[in-house]
Write a protein that binds this DNA or RNA. Structure first.
Lengths: 272, 272
DNA sequence: TTGCTCCTCACGTCACGTGAGGTGGC
DNA sequence: TTGCTCCTCACGTCACGTGAGGTGGC
């Protein structure tokens, strides 16, 4: 029988840890003095302590370790280990992605030698009921005019149907950002319930998508650097575009363009 | 100005998270109604929220993010990123090691089809003042006899010097475990203070070492499987031995060998 | 007797999640 | 008026670490 300090030294853990394991019932001292409360361990308990440490090193929680020690079958243990393996593979991958993000950010800072202007975030969009009008615009400078008319048409259908707009307008661009002729664009307004469309205005559900997104402040003419930032972020972090990109007009202020807030979303997936 | 729920949806975070960021001062709503307590955000604040999310994805704590946002120079930010990179590399390596340990354990279970008998743990031994006698034993079966005499000699020196034993005896084997002739072994007793040795009994400090250790219950004749378990663990987990191995005799019970507890420690380092 | 060890609370960590109980806004 | 949203506590999470204040053992 040895005292807690010696047992702690033996197992290379802290005394506090041993008291904690006692409290949760994971490793009870073999004998506790009733009057002093002193905990006494037997050297033989080192085996159990080592088993606990070994399982902890595999990523098990103390609760799971208790289950394992309280007699699991071999099959059950193997099952748990396979779960742990999957988890470890997961977190390995996410650590790798994180490292890549850090390096990409460092690269960005070193190249520009200043704080990056854009913060790209990965997120999953919520699915949404929308109505939209898809058009082709002959020339790039006509986009505002054509898009404005399209939005008005969609808006009219929504109010005629007695529904309501449910969130900011967005545009889906059905071709890469560098195409400037015969652009295929879709003017989209979220609606609060399913309404009936027609052959010009469609109504459907925009599905949830994983996107890389960036927020831009200012007049829409200055969007290009934000696109470039997204593209280089994707390249540096090993993502590739999986569909058409969107612009979401969160706030619009013609008088003070600095108050205009636009979000660009590129649907992405990991490239490797 | 939008309400907390809408802002949360915009940034794809929870309302609770936004309240938390308000509480710690990381992201204050632009306006709070005095009477109702309602928080109101401006869409422009989405940029700050996105910056927070992006930095969190790089592994920064909320406190660190606050520092970054409260105007760090580019150089300071680059420094923090380099620290984060080092940390990410570290945890990447440890995740890889963990995955390997899990797979090694799975392999062990599948091969033996039962609970593993031995739990190998990695630890660092504490440095320790010791006195020892190193001898050569002609034949394997004479080991107990020779070792016993050596321990007695060391023990005598300690008591003559007025010092005390400070921990269990251990043996260092100066050659691989499969050598059985002319074995070079060292009988070691920890002492509580530095004493003067002689040409037969040396006194020195056993340094701290990283070891892979296993605990064995039962008579010393049955130690071999424990050695084999250590060796295969090292192979499966990518470690290699860096010196001589030790046996530590934590408890000895001739009458009831099941109460005998012995620990084997192999000094190791990662092989890759 | 003097250190050293041990004891039991109680609180902190980190970034929120989860109720409970109550109110505001369309 | 009815849902839905928002509010503020208060407590939980996970595996301990860190004191505070007091006692036991050689």
């Amino acid at each position: 029988m040895i005292r807690i300090g010696d047992f702690a030294r033996l197992g290379r853990v802290s005394v506090v840890t041993l008291r904690h394991y006692d409290e949760i019932g994971l490793l009870k001292p073999e004998y506790v003095d009733r009057t002093t409360g002193y905990r006494h361990y037997s050297v033989r308990q080192l085996a159990r302590l080592n088993r606990i440490i070994a399982l902890k090193d595999l990523g098990f929680s103390l609760k799971q370790i208790e289950q394992v020690l309280d007699g699991l079958t071999v099959g059950q243990l193997a099952g748990m280990l396979k779960m742990k393996r999957a988890q470890a593979e997961q977190s390995l991958a996410s650590e790798q992605a994180k490292l890549q993000r850090i390096e990409s950010r460092l690269l960005q800072i070193e190249m520009e030698d200043r704080m990056p202007d854009y913060d790209i975030v990965l997120k999953t969009t919520a699915p949404q009921q929308v109505s939209s009008r898809r058009i082709t615009v002959p020339q790039n400078n006509e986009v505002p005019h054509y898009l404005g008319a399209a939005y008005e048409e969609v808006s009219r259908l929504i109010s005629v149907a007695g529904a309501k707009q449910d969130g900011p307008c967005l545009t889906v661009w059905h071709q890469p950002a560098d195409v400037v002729e015969n652009e295929d664009v879709e003017a989209i307004i979220p609606v609060n319930r399913a309404i009936v469309g027609n052959d010009r205005v469609k109504v459907y559900e925009l599905p949830a998508t994983e996107v890389a997104a960036v927020v831009f402040h200012g007049s829409l003419e200055g969007l290009e650097p934000a696109h470039l930032a997204l593209l280089s972020w994707m390249e540096n972090n090993g993502y590739r575009m999986t569909g058409t990109y969107r612009e979401i007009y969160h706030a619009n202020d013609r008088e003070n363009p600095a108050n205009t807030v636009t979000e660009i979303q590129y649907p992405v997936e990991r490239a490797s």
